[in-house]
Nucleic acid binder design. Structure first.
Lengths: 342, 342
DNA sequence: TTGTAGGCGTTATCAA
DNA sequence: TTGATAACGCCTACAA
């Protein structure tokens, strides 16, 4: 059933059908009824492509994430998709993985879908070699790019980032204040947010008067056992009295290490993880975790995007230029549970 | 840059450009080079809408799920999207929530996007009042509907379901064999798979010679604490020696109950959960869990879909009719960890 | 208030 | 091997 079929069946022109389905007011009640009756009887869903072709916008946002099964990103996708749909936008999702070529290909694919904007969720879209970000910068010339927890300084690229640095710094200081003197930091990714977190550790140490060269920062594979085994080795080398991890997954790993080693938590060893996902409260004992305030960040992303895509109009109907900050920072929040003596 | 711009710049017709970008073989090397040079220089992404309009297919699958932040569904989405993209299909995702009107609206929306097929992920799309499934049945007249862990008997609707019943039944029997005599089953959803699981409990009990009226089956809110408190109350009424839960989330809740109550796991109480998600192995002690083999199920969904959408051609180039079973059952698998004495 | 006709960017068909 | 040209389904001036 297309618009011609409907118009024929209703005995009116396609223009009238178009007017009815688009809720124009210059249609007689009689015509409207004729058309609606036919639609109700036969059913009809306008073809969004044809519509988009004519109008130049499909009201679609392209979302890229490296792995939608990652708890953190899964939540992000949920918040983003739900919020955008409320605003009349649909989402095409690409789970790009971590491979550069794949990310780039996904971006191209979204371009071909004429998305109105891109959302790059997660900090894995900022490449080390800044030349490799060129595809994003070029793409932004056509449509805005929103980065969730990533930052690239370019035209039409906007960022909403969690204050990872501040969150980790606070955690470090809190641990210090609670008596921890031998803290080890475990991370598993050299992404944008990964480096911010390390900065946070360093800054926290500085404020506590700890020399940077005595800091213990180790990198491990992001799995429960990978982290647990890494810590086991490190503990053999030299014991520590507290662990900060860059994710809840790693936090669980730290917990497993403590259990296997027979260390009491938080008496013998304190643990602070990052993200405050379900994993943190599922753990036993429950993990103290830095809440990255993901929902807030996602909501900001959507609000900014709507502002960009539907700028308010001035009296003459021209879009007023909107000023949108290139980088929005969302404060993190420490959620204290059972793995610390705060 | 559209196809006209490219054709002008290359000094050939749009037909030639079209041939080049679609990899047709009846193009001279000279023409191909001219076109490719121009594309390389100016960049060009074909407009997928126009393409879809012309071809009648957008190579897009609509995926509906109630909540992408649910660990189980998040994994499903990941598997599905990745696999489909490998096959040249893109996905539009709708997180529909649990509200009927919303589910229906999302379905309509996907229809308007001319998706080539629908995937309904999760068992929340089978309504109790079968009249409410009509929108799915009608939709299936146009494009195939694949249900992951749901079943509706209708034309062009296909199901891939995990053998929830068998999985739960095995768990019950295993518990019985390990000495459990007072098992309680906790669930939180009356979905299609929810009812299958209850059947599994009943069947397991029957095989163990336990009268159905002595079975304890309770329903609670699907949160860690909701389940923990429910079990606390139940235990006050009458102690039990083992718990089976319909999800890992509830399994964690059971674990929390045991810890708070001071019960030793698995000595005093055994726990078996369902899904074998990350939560199961994150728990302390680690949860014995029924693996629903989600990846396998998703892979089946994709394979069936590809068969349906791209049927093999016979000698004359006509699609051969493919016979595809309406319902595929994937066997579940019990993963034994620390919360049982198996 | 209604209908006609042109355009959106491709693909596909048919001549040349 | 190429190039015109007609779909594809809708929107929107513009004309009636």
């Amino acid at each position: 059933m297309n618009i011609y079929d409907i118009s024929k069946a209703a005995g009116v022109s396609i223009a009238s059908v178009s007017r009815v389905i688009n809720g124009a007011d210059n249609v007689s009640e009689k015509t409207r009824k004729k058309v609606m009756d036919v639609i109700d009887e036969y059913g009809y869903t306008p073809n969004a492509y044809a519509r988009g072709l004519g109008r130049g916008s499909m009201k679609t946002i392209g979302i890229m994430c490296s792995d939608s099964s990652d708890i953190y990103l899964a939540n992000a996708i949920y918040y983003l998709e739900t919020e955008l749909r409320k605003n009349g936008y649909n989402c095409i999702l690409c789970c790009t993985g971590y491979d550069y070529e794949n990310k780039k290909a996904s971006f191209e694919l979204l371009k071909s879908r004429q998305v109105d904007a891109f959302i790059l969720a997660g900090s894995k879209y900022v490449e080390k070699d800044s030349k490799d970000n060129q595809y994003i910068i070029d793409g932004a010339k056509e449509h805005p790019v929103m980065m969730l927890n990533g930052y690239i300084d370019a035209d039409n690229v906007y960022s909403v980032v969690c204050d990872d640095k501040g969150g980790i710094k606070d955690a470090f200081i809190k641990l210090y204040e609670s008596g921890a003197r031998k803290t080890i930091y475990v991370y598993s990714s050299d992404s944008y947010s990964g480096s911010k977190k390390i900065e946070g550790i360093k800054e926290g140490a500085r404020e506590c008067g700890i020399p940077e060269n005595s800091l213990r920062i180790v990198k491990g594979e992001k799995t429960f056992n990978g982290i647990a085994e890494l810590l086991e080795k490190e503990y053999e080398k030299k014991p520590f009295d507290s662990v900060i991890t860059s994710s809840d997954t790693s936090g669980i790993g730290a917990l497993k290490f403590a259990v296997r080693r027979g260390l009491r938590v938080p008496e013998d060893i304190q643990i602070v993880s990052f993200n405050n996902s379900k994993l943190a409260s599922a753990a036993n004992p429950e993990l103290t975790s830095v809440d990255a305030r993901l929902e807030e960040s996602c909501s900001r992303v959507c609000k900014l995007l709507m502002k960009l895509l539907n700028p308010p109009l001035d009296e003459e109907g021209n879009p007023k230029p909107v000023s949108i900050s290139k980088k929005t920072k969302v404060k993190s929040k420490l959620v204290t549970r059972e793995t610390t003596r705060f």
